[in-house]
Design a protein around this nucleic acid. Sequence first.
DNA 1: TAGGCCATCTGGTCCT
DNA 2: AGGACCAGATGGCCTA
Length: 343
Amino acid sequence: MMAKLYGRPSEGAELVSSLEWMDDDVSSPDGDEPITAHRYRPGGMGHLGRELGSEDMEEDEEEGEEEDHGDGNAPKRRGPKRKRMTKARQERFKARRVKANARERSRMHGLNDALENLRSIMPCHSKTQKLSKIETLRLARNYICALSEALEGDQSTESRAFMETLCKGLSQPTSNLLAGCLQLGPGGHIEERPEDRQGGRGGPTILGGVGMAVGPISYSSPGLPSPPYGTLDSAHLLHLRGMKGGAYESHSPNDCNSGVGTPPYDGPPTPPLSIGSNLVLKQESSPHYLPPHHYPPSSIGLTGPQGQVLYQSARYQVPLEMPYDSYRPPHMAPPQMGTVYGD
DNA sequence: TAGGCCATCTGGTCCT
DNA sequence: AGGACCAGATGGCCTA
């Protein structure tokens, strides 16, 4: 009867059957037990179509008072006698419901758009392994905390602590994605690799023990993990380096736990870079621009129980003992405006 | 097959 | 009265 408004199979469906259900005795199909929103139509989608107190939803009582249902103890329903659900009222209700559904869809799409915007400014995102909603929110929260701590000077954006803050409470796959992003760095342009599909739910463990508690990032899987893929917008982090004395300087420490005491924030001098899998770095001219850096494997926990390197970027195999700055590949110089990394 | 994630429908509540 | 927001519920899709 109803044309599908969007792609989802169930969209616009079931309304008619809901109305049909509404034509049944409202008290309950099998008795006078109170109807709550949790009573369902068997096999159908959605709830018993009923709006308490709504004229349109007042039920068909053409048989008069509800039957006894054979249970003499059942209390009689109180309140005004319900009017019959006429055809016209059904139509009105239907139209109203359709409108409400459309509004709700649109509202949820707006919410999803906002979430997508949030994803796009996360330090790490992959074309093929999209962060789930909950993971996006968690990562965003962690990102804010990590950046706040970095601004306080407690930790460097290249530190292990920064990574740990970033990974707090994230799922294993998301942590893996982060690790992969950090590992691949600016040259890590990944385009639709088949392994991408495996990095999703329950993928191989790289960062073990990263739970709600702040645990050490440690490798917990015996075999070599397959590399997670994605990209890290490390320029995000590097903005920080140039911010001392800049617009962020006045940003006082922010307690991630209390969430209070954050002064008004004027925003960065340049909009946050949003670099997807194509890694387009286009803000070299920004006064706060700093070239992307690369995390040493040891800083993101890609080591075995004995500290051995279990996973390293194929491009940059470096000894773990080397300080980070000493092995930054020479080609990590600031890219040209509009540079597209990758193949 | 179980579990996670998602889009959608739905009824209730609050607000304008 | 109508819209926004919310939470509960369903079924579909996907992956391990």
